[in-house]
Design a protein around this nucleic acid. Structure first.
Lengths: 243, 243
DNA sequence: CGCGCATTTGAGGGCACTCAAGAGTAGTGG
DNA sequence: CCACTACTCTTGAGTGCCCTCAAATGCGCG
């Protein structure tokens, strides 16, 4: 049930951060036509659910999405959070139905690009085609980063998570040191494979170590992404399992 | 330093299990020409290392490969094992250099397909193009399966790992119940994020539970992939962290 | 205000870890 | 063929990280 409104990519403030920017001038018109913008999602509304037909990529314009599945016991397992400028849907590009849920963590606006449009664009532009493949393999490396992260201690996992969010904020021109987490402690836990209590405990611990100031979901990082801090992360709270 | 010998895909016993099978008759000639077969790798020889130029996919014809990286402490982190019929190299398709090591776990023969050839084929065949994208997104789902696995107990992780190897053997027409593991306990540990000692301990435990017979690297599964056994896995050795 | 939800903090327990040592296996060369 | 070496695998004892259970506090909202 998507509708079109304000669909001009030329006017979009994020155009330079979007697939759009990789297109040649004569291709932009095509892209523009194929894009749809959805009605804003309210907090806790679903963009899609398991079993829904999947036929599009989505680009987050504002707000944030949580993509997750429910395991056999009904627990959430979070695959990722999507912040403004990020693209959701590469995992279902070759399937007809969604295998996951996507839920808005705040009021969220997304653009929609039908897979069919991608094929048209890819056919017309070799550059776009490569861009697509690159995005694909970047998607794989995101999954790998997570797997790497899961072999670390809770302390390191959470530090790295915060650094990651910080970088992604920075990339979009937002502050990389002070920001509001769009997700709950439980969400973070479901992503990093930790219990809520552990997330909470570790956050206060990191704060006590002077790397962080937290107040609810407001955080400010204090030189966390520095060599010295990395050392602290490795020594004060030694990574488990480092023989 | 790859050489050509016996390069006809038509004669390959694995042709029906390869990307080759998806091609139309008139395209097979092109594919055939682009394929190279490398000299067999001896046990512990590297197919590629971190920093090597990457320009090809590899298909395992016989033997087995281990793809891994070394963390900052020099420990191995295994991304996957590649058995006959499986394809290595999708993760570097958009990069110029390898980010991982690939090592032969036994005497191993691989076919090589230059990325450039893929582009040619994809351009000529829409079907092949889709096949490629599908393989890509399957690659993502493999990574996700691993992440899901890492949130389970050591017991479940190892059971699932064995079931996985079993299935992959079966898919290639080998026995799915009796087979030889090509990798060491340490390799399994580096893949499942467990210590060698834990892998060993759990294997004997699974054996005591009657799901398995192990003798060195020879294993035979006993109804492991059955509902009843799955229940056993969940109850006798309850998965950690299931609230 | 009162309800529900998110977050924090405490007490105690279990799984996988570390350290350590012994048994089994493969490969090499005299 | 066997001694020797190196490596893999196994098993035991003890520890710690993160879990579970429990309860208190904070916070947003109708």
């Amino acid at each position: 049930m998507s509708i079109r409104f304000n669909n001009s990519c030329q006017q979009c403030v994020r155009a330079s951060l979007c697939l759009y920017s990789t297109l040649a001038e004569n291709e932009k018109g095509i892209f523009d036509e194929q894009i749809m913008q959805r009605r804003p999602l309210q907090r806790n509304q679903f963009l899609f659910s398991v079993g829904d037909n999947s036929s599009s990529l989505f680009i987050v314009k504002s707000g944030a999405l949580k993509v997750f599945e429910l395991n056999e016991f009904g627990n959430e397992l979070v695959w990722g959070f999507y912040l403004p400028g990020e693209i959701v849907g590469f995992d279902t590009i070759s399937t007809t139905r969604h295998a996951n849920f996507a839920k808005a963590l705040a009021t969220t606006v997304v653009c929609e690009i039908p897979y069919a449009s991608l094929e048209i664009l890819a056919e017309n532009s070799r550059k776009f085609q490569r861009q697509l493949i690159q995005t694909f393999s970047r998607e794989i490396s995101v999954e790998r980063r997570l797997r790497r992260l899961l072999s670390e201690s809770a302390y390191v996992r959470i530090c790295q998570f915060l650094i990651d969010v910080s970088r992604r904020n920075g990339k979009q021109g937002m502050s990389a040191t002070r920001f509001t987490l769009p997700m709950s402690r439980a969400d973070i836990g479901a992503y990093l494979d930790l219990r809520v209590e552990t997330v909470s405990r570790v956050l206060t611990q990191i704060q006590n170590d002077g790397l962080l100031k937290v107040c609810g979901r407001e955080v400010s990082l204090i030189n966390m992404d520095q060599p010295a801090s990395r050392e602290l992360m490795a020594t004060v709270k030694p990574a488990f399992k480092v023989a």
